[in-house]
Amino acid sequence: MKDIKIHVNDLSLYYGEKKALKEISMQIPANKVTALIGPSGCGKSTFLRCINRMNDLIPSVRITGEMLVEGIDIYDKNVDVVNIRKKIGMVFQKSNPFPKSIYENIAYGPKINGLKDKTQLDEIVEVSLRQAAIWDEVKDRLGDSALGLSGGQQQRLCIARTLAVSPDIILMDEPASALDPISTSKIEELVHQLKEQYTIIIVTHNMQQAARTSDHTAFFYMGELIEMGKTNTIFTKPLQKQTEDYITGRFG
């Protein structure tokens, strides 16, 4: 029980009438990397956005079932969505730094939490950037616009920005899909280091990436969770025919 961070019980999601996620039940272990794979449109990203309630932003979305994070149902009426998102960070597919300086990007989260102390902010910025393995590249130009960074650097900056609010869980939505191979490997390496401290859930359509980075893998297809297990098992001897077909490249 202690090792399981998130329990999902019978979670379904509707876009208006359309059922986009069908009775998903899964358990996501703590301090491990869990990969969500599947063909595009299978619901893996939608599911990821359920975990920090980003889907709340879409008015037509309705969710049933339970999403227990450390035993607390985050869809409970008494739970504050803003506080949820402070605990569950998110890195998006397209790097989306604010059009501010590098420093301000990192300090954004702590600042909106009311932190004003300059030395503490400086410290958080440095530690976060170091954790995201980008400190050496940007330490001399913290005041420059974040938009001047390369795509890979921007994405690592976004990871650092997420780390700065010290979340428990980090959700990554195809974080390397728009990056070149070198940047991708840097991100993957980073994911590997971060799992010591964080529970990471990563959506990817790149099977090699899932195999390289994750401890557990869940395969989604048509809004359903087909199979979940240790990454090794999923990639070597999947239980379901559909999983095998997908992994061997027969569709998707």
Partner: peptide, 13 residues
């Protein structure tokens, strides 16, 4: 939209 989402995902109101 990505910028708004980035901010909200960081726990901004």
């Amino acid at each position: 939209r990505e910028l708004r989402e980035a901010s909200l995902a960081l726990g901004a109101t």
